[in-house]
Structure formats: C-alpha cells, structure tokens
Amino acid sequence: MHPAPSVILFTVMSGAGFGMLAFLGIGLPDVTGWVAFTFFAIAYVLAVGGLMASTFHLGHPERAIKAFSQWRTSWLSREGCCAVFTLLVMAVYGAGLVFLGTRWTALGFVGSFASVLTVFTTSMIYAQLRTVPRWHSPMTPALLLSLSLAGGALLTGQEKAAIALLVVAGAIQIMAWLKGDGALTASGSTLASATGLGTASTVRAFEPPHTGTNYLLNEFVHVVGRKHGLQLRVISFFLMIVLPIGMLLLPFSHLFAALAVLSHLAGTAVSRWLFFAEAEHVVGLYYGKRTT
C-alpha cells in the first residue's frame, strides 16, 4: 500500500492524542488549573491535528460532514462519530478541571472509554480489509491500541504504566511482523485464484493492461523500501520501544521524559510507514507483482 504521509501522521498523532485522553479521563495525572490546561492542549493538538491531517488525502474534504452518516456498516464513519463524541465529552470534562477545579469522575470515565473506542475504530478500518491479508487480523487492533495507550502513558508521565505498555506493545509489534509476513500466502489468494486459469496450469502475467502506470499501481502496489524492511524494523523497534524504556528506567528528569516521548513517536512513525509500505493488496496479483 502507498504510505501516504497524511495517513501516517494522522494515525500516529491521533493515536497518541486519544491515548493521552484515555489517561486524563481516569484522572492520571490528577491535575487541575493551568497544568491540566497544558495536558489537554497537547492531547487536543495531537488528536485534532491528526484528524485534520487525515482530511488532506480526501478528494473532496468539503463534503466530510457526510462521513458521519453510515455508522451502521462503515468503520470509517464510526471512527468519525467516535472521535467527535470523545472530543466533545473530554472538552466538557477538561473545562471542569481547568476552569472550575472540579473532576467529574463519571464523565471522565465515559471520555476515557470513548478515547480507546476511537482508536479501536481507526484500527478496524484496516483490520476489516480482507484485500490486505497483512492487516486482516486481530493483531492490527491489538497493535494500534497498545501503541496508543503506551504513547498516552508516556505523554501523561505515567512511568510504570508506560514501561508495562511499551513491553506489551513491543511484543505485539514483533508478533504482528512475524504473522504478517506469511499472511498473503495464508490468505490463499494467488494469481491462479485471481484469474481462474490455474487448474493444471501455471499462470504468468504476460502483459499489463497499459504501458503506463495507473491509480491502482500507485495506491496498492508500493514496493519501494521493502528491501530495507528489516533495517527499518530494527530502527523502529529501537526508537519506539527500547530507547523510551531505557530513558524511563534512568533517574527521572524532564529532559529524559521528553526524549522518551519524541523517540517513541519517531519510532511509531517508522513502524506505521512499514505498516503501509509492507502491506500487500491482492490486486497486485493481477499485475504479477506478488510473487509468493
């Protein structure tokens, strides 16, 4: 799949933002006034900024309001509804903390749950796609949820929770990579099944439909960077998991905490780039681009 910068930015930023809101909603850290304002401002910049970035890849962003209508079947629509609901609830909850110094506990729990639900709906946009076997797995929601919560714990300064969640996210990431590498083969989709020409014969793509490229090849048959996949996985894992845990184990300092957050977000961005760049869409079979 084509790793569009807008979608990478969106999923990384909004994942961390909603992860922060999930912690703030349950009173971790228990802050009020200006300190609370700062925490909420960071969370909203990440979450809303991510949502704004995701509209950059739309053909008609001015019609985005229509995307709230099809929540009965569409995970993308559900994500939109969940995100707006969460942001509204948490705005009221945050206003109570910042301006009144009051913590509306029940409202915070609702907002926290809705934050996690929003990240889940985002992950299901990818996990629902049978056409991309690497994504069509429970590993996708597990990975996006664990990374979102780990990022949220880091950003809200929850050191113990952050270490635990980073370990969990790291384990899920490795499992997702290992399982994902065999997913296309396990899906059973081949050039033979795609064309129906494989009974007692071998099929080879002889000639593409056009001499030039097209939307399908640009969007679904991204192959650049696959050869550096292993190096990028190591870099991503080190930045996203290992380095932040190391920083958290050192005696606390604001500098190390900030570096841990930046390192984690940078590593998550690399991981997310790989999430798209390494995902094989079955339409590539028709173009002879998927040799398994």
Partner: peptide, 9 residues
C-alpha cells in the same frame, strides 16, 4: 482494463 496472461498447461 484488459490484462494478458501466459498459461502453461
């Protein structure tokens, strides 16, 4: 779009 495939029985 029309693809072309080589089939070897």
């Amino acid at each position: 779009r029309v693809h072309s495939y080589e089939v070897q029985p």
